[in-house]
Write a protein that binds this DNA or RNA. Structure first.
Length: 499
RNA sequence: GGGCCGUUAACUCAGACGGUAGAGUAUCUGCCUUUUAAGCAGAGAGUCACUGGUUCGAGUCCAGUACGGCCCA
């Protein structure tokens, strides 16, 4: 932006006040300002104390934060400072801070960061406040903050200048706090059950473990093409082969695809594996994990999401992907012969407006029909099972056409994907070969053949359950938002063009 | 990639039919010792996203570009 060419009047005013700080405040411009207690802690401890009680005890308080409001009334001033999770009112009395220092308050602006020392009291309206005896300017805010009442509304600015959003919009800060609590809760849940947190490569020579387009990069010294990982799956299972039998990783995946309210090119996933267990064990683990996480973050399993209330309380019902897809098709008056026969299916795909590419076989057609007609209606947590082998190249077979796999849907979103792991190296090679054929046939999302991984399987992977949970999406549910960008501190945006 | 919508003061927003820009907050100057969207009086603040076009005249109409939002692929 070009606002620096002719500096804004408001910024000039703030600068000229700042210029006077050295002279006006002198030694009161410290390098550090330790505080006794966070503001939220003060409010928590004394917010309910009575006016009389506080007057009697004259509890000293030393606090620091960003000044977010300032009301001057003659010989008395009110302000609020906020810091992290809390805010507290300040009361400046001319008689208490001294005439000279009271006048110097005019060198402060809303947005400045200050430290204060004084004692706690309650005002006539009963608000806990610090009666300031001494204040210490700590940092100048040279740019005016957005308006206090409406906050910052400009969505683009909210994403590009998240710090402003966080200073001003309390609900936004709350959403990110919920996200942090969610991740803490899940990490705690996993470690309490003996899972070990590990880190596996972000830069991979073969982007495996999922169906997605990868980002490509290049390593100069090795002169080789590398991919940002689309999933950690194949590395985590190598660890299980190595005897780390209960592992999890909470980290970023990268997929070179479109951006919308549910997708960001980089997103956070938890993947976890447990040897000697099956998909059934993880169905139960997932229910327990999510209900516990909801309680830890919100204090309840009843989660408000938009107009709906979602119950995170276990257990969650289970449905069959094929059965539900067929039911949905029957209810549209479409009989089974219509999709069994390739030519009629082709016409059907057209009339249902499905992706020809994605629905290119009978099994894939049913998956597409499920995605299109069934999954949007899965509001309450629901496990979907009965996945076709054709779309599950890493899952253990249940029968010739079906794998032991489930997905969890909540609010119409795919939240988790888990299965009993395929541990037969010969079968795995065949599956990779099928994928390679699909890739040659034009499917950009088909999985790359990872021979090194097959080699690991030849040393013996125990029967193992594996699962991935989309952390951002769970955060969206708990933070009651429709857009993934609201739970990503810095969602990807195009840079603004230089002029 | 396609469709629709948005971009006006630092922020939040108004600006019929084309006639030269308006409010609230914030800022500045006064007054004010319990306010809290404090109040009262006054003042300053704009490349109307950008580039072209139509017109005597464009924030407004048309075309294009950029960025963003929603929906679709």
């Amino acid at each position: 932006m070009s606002e620096d060419l002719v500096e804004d009047e408001l910024i000039q005013q703030r600068r000229s006040k700042w210029d006077k700080w050295e002279e006006a405040f002198g030694e009161r411009l410290p390098e550090r300002f330790p505080v006794d207690k966070e503001i939220s802690g003060l409010v928590g401890l004394y917010g309910n104390s009575s006016k009389e009680e506080l007057e009697a005890k004259k509890i000293p308080a030393r606090s620091a934060g960003r000044m977010i409001s300032f009301r001057r009334m003659g010989k008395l001033c009110f302000a609020h400072i906020s810091e992290g999770k809390g805010k507290i009112q300040l009361l400046f009395e001319k008689g208490v801070v001294g005439e000279e220092w009271f006048e110097k308050l005019s060198l402060l602006d809303i947005g400045d960061i200050i430290g204060v020392e004084g004692y706690l009291l309650k005002t006539r309206t009963g608000e806990l406040s610090i009666a300031v005896e001494k204040y210490t300017p700590l940092s100048k805010c040279l740019r005016p903050l957005p308006e206090k009442w409406h906050g910052l509304q400009d969505i683009e600015q909210i994403y590009r200048q998240r710090y402003l959003d966080l200073i001003i919009n309390g609900e936004s800060r709350e959403r990110f706090i919920r996200r942090v609590k969610l991740i803490e809760a899940i990490r705690g849940f996993m470690t309490a059950r003996g899972f070990m947190e590990v880190e596996t490569p972000m830069l991979q020579p073969i982007a495996g473990g999922a169906a997605a387009k990868p980002f490509v990069t290049h390593h100069n010294a090795l002169n080789m093409e590398l991919f940002l990982r689309i999933a950690p799956e194949l590395y985590l299972k190598r660890l299980v082969v190595g005897g780390f039998h209960k592992v999890f990783e909470i980290n970023r995946n990268f997929r070179n695809e479109g951006i919308d309210t549910r997708h960001n090119p980089e997103f956070t996933m938890m993947e976890f594996y447990e040897a000697f267990s099956s998909m059934e064990d993880f169905v139960r683990l997932t229910e327990e994990m999510l209900s516990e996480a909801a309680v830890r973050v919100l204090g309840t399993t009843d989660v408000k999401h938009g107009e709906k209330t979602i119950s995170f309380a276990a257990p969650y019902p289970r449905i069959s992907l094929r059965d539900e897809a067929k039911k949905a098709l029957f209810s549209k008056g479409i009989p089974e012969e219509e999709w069994k026969d390739p030519e009629r299916r082709s016409r059907l795909i057209q009339s249902l407006d499905l992706s020809r590419e994605k629905a290119r076989s009978e099994e894939r057609f049913l998956v597409e029909a499920f995605d299109e007609f069934v999954s949007p209606s899965l509001i309450q947590p629901t496990f979907v099972t009965d996945f076709p082998l054709e779309v599950s190249p890493l899952s253990r077979k249940k029968d010739e056409k079906t794998v032991s796999r489930f997905e969890l849907y909540i609010a119409g979103m795919e939240i988790a994907n888990g299965f009993s792991e395929l541990n037969d190296p010969d079968d795995q090679r065949k599956r990779f070969e099928d994928q390679a054929r699909e890739k040659a046939g034009g499917d950009q999302e088909a999985m790359g053949y990872d021979e090194d991984y097959c080699g690991a399987l030849e040393y013996g992977l125990p029967p193992t359950a594996g699962e991935g949970i989309g952390i951002d999406r769970v955060a969206m549910l708990l933070a009651d938002t429709e857009s993934i960008r609201d739970v990503l501190l810095f969602p990807l945006l195009k840079p603004r063009q230089a002029e």
